[in-house]
Write a protein that binds this DNA or RNA. Structure first.
Lengths: 342, 342
DNA sequence: GTGAAAGCGCTAACAC
DNA sequence: GTGTTAGCGCTTTCAC
């Protein structure tokens, strides 16, 4: 049924080695006649090498594994694009898994990838499998983390400057006269982007002489409805009502908007709103949303490039940390008409 | 360096066969003592079988390949989720490629998948590689197409009822008194969803006694800016100015909205807008968008289930066509306040 | 109850 | 210039 190299060899009246050599372009020494014949037979039989066998021999699969936490978020879809493009351009294929923020799933996927002999792994870690991460690094397995920093582990990382992103956003709000800024952030635990955004927020306030009021920092559990609930609560109160909300997540922003709308409030007249992560829809929201834009495609691209370097042992073997810069896209949700982007 | 089954065997003082048997749960006949010992050594050495070798032996990889045309569109991200979940639940891994609507890339990816010995392929075909598709089917290779029908080929397909979707949308527009409805559709070529949506559009008009005017059907080349250009052109003309636009694509809708906004027009007062594909942002647009919603997750889920059936040779071997039903989500962009969904 | 050996499809060192 | 052979890591048949 399946045609193998042996079939080709037999039909061409040569040995498997000859076919193999010709297949792999090592025809420094073959007769043009043999080459032509073998090539003809290959075409005739529509022979295609079994990469399983090739890989078993060479111990190289040219496959990269990626573990993402959330396919729904267009931020990650865009990262995936960057990874995919880079892989293809460099002759690698992609296996993809979804951890769904579940450390057990993550563990399973990492081990599965290794058993499948992928050449390397890119991961947005749940940050809850420290022992496993460490063992991967110790085994010198090609491993690049993206987005989240694993504290206390010296490993390659491509991430964003989240302090700067939050800082820029909050400064913009302050410039527009909003002093009382509610921060919405999912439970930070050990998750560096969240911690850094909190830090950037505080830094901007402090630098501008505004007191950091902890009551304005809202840690939101990642459970359906929690965001909207919080929005409604804080906007219904009379004391301490914020002038602006800084949403540190894409999807969260939509929920916030929903809550605001249900209260019959208007953005930015009644409340300003600043989002994180530019998306295709940001400019079409009501009102057009001011957001901190992150170079997501580039993050994927860089991570893949770095991983391939690691795999092919070109470039520095020392773990590298690559921090990309966000930029602010100013629209109308923070109380100004368009000015220029910073 | 790498620990193999031979290492385990040596350390445990047994043969490779014994280890293999225990590994695979065939311990009907082993001493409890041997079992324990082997299991202990496996744990100690942190041994994990090389699936490449297993697969080479068994000629089964438990990997499925999927080729999508556009990761950017959340519709496909959602389909991917359905596929991924189903694969994981059934013990399969996923390899993913992006054809970018390029038939050459598609060809390359399909062949690459086959060389990697994936157990089966799911594809949203470019519909431009008929010869290749046919050869896959002839070889009885497990193959499920999604979304687009390949004309003249008897192959498994999971798709949507696009005639019904367009029909429902247009009827809604008609019910709201819009008779002059511009249809926006990307170049249909042989692409069934596009053809079917045109058909549904015409059917609804005809059934309601409205003449189908071909001048209202706008075939848009998939090139940056074409959509906006068309919007501006038709809405600036005085004669034949439509009362509504029916956008048959997700991303297209955003561009249309942009064009309308740049003209300083208002939806739905100046022009109604009906979208295709519900997304997370549809309800937050200005105004909240009425859309035809497609069960994208389910499409992915069903396709994966069917493919696994095919691979495992359970169920019917005859090519099956599975058509999912869309439903209309009514909001405010077509000139009504909320009524009930159909 | 366990081991030896062959073989999955391919590559590469060595021989001629 | 080409063939023979061993071996990548695993499973499985057949012996004992």
């Amino acid at each position: 049924m399946r045609v193998t190299i042996a079939d080709v060899a037999k039909h061409a009246g040569v040995s498997k080695s000859t076919v193999s050599r010709i297949l792999n372009g090592n025809y420094g020494q073959n007769t043009q006649e043999t080459i032509d014949k073998v090539l003809r037979i290959i075409k005739e039989l529509d022979y295609r090498p079994n990469m399983l066998a090739q890989s078993l021999k060479s111990m190289k699969t040219n496959v990269i594994g990626i573990i993402l936490s959330n396919l729904k978020n267009p931020f990650w879809a865009r990262v995936l694009e960057g990874v995919e493009d880079t892989c293809r351009l460099n002759g690698y294929s992609l296996m993809i898994c979804n951890s769904n923020e579940d450390p057990l799933l993550e563990d399973e996927h990492i081990k599965g990838f290794q058993m499948k002999q992928v050449d390397g792994i890119i991961i947005n870690p749940t940050v809850k499998n420290d022992f496993l991460y460490k063992s991967i690094v110790e085994k010198q397995f090609p491993f690049v983390t993206i987005n989240r920093k694993i504290f206390g582990l010296d490993v390659d990382l491509v991430t964003m400057d989240n302090v700067a992103g939050a800082f820029a956003g909050v400064e913009h709000l302050l410039r527009n006269g909003k002093k009382s800024i509610a921060l919405f952030v999912y439970t930070p635990d050990n998750i560096s982007p969240r911690l850094d955004r909190i830090e950037g927020y505080k830094k901007a306030l402090t630098k501008n002489g505004v007191m950091v009021e902890d009551s304005l920092i809202h840690i939101i559990e990642e459970k359906k409805g929690m965001v909207k609930e919080t929005v409604k609560r804080i906007l219904s109160e009379n004391y301490n009502r914020p002038e602006a909300i800084f949403s540190t997540n894409n999807m969260m922003t939509l929920e916030i908007l929903e809550g605001i709308k249900e209260l019959g409030l208007n953005v930015p007249d009644d409340i300003s709103l600043l989002g994180y992560d530019e998306t295709v829809w940001s400019m079409h929201l009501d009102p057009p949303l001011t957001t901190v834009n992150q170079p997501s495609y580039e993050m994927g691209e860089l991570a893949a490039k770095r991983l391939i370097e690691l795999i092919e042992k070109k470039g520095d073997k020392e773990p590298t940390i690559n921090v990309l810069q966000p930029n602010l896209i100013i629209r109308e949700s923070c109380g100004t008409k368009k000015e220029h982007s910073c």
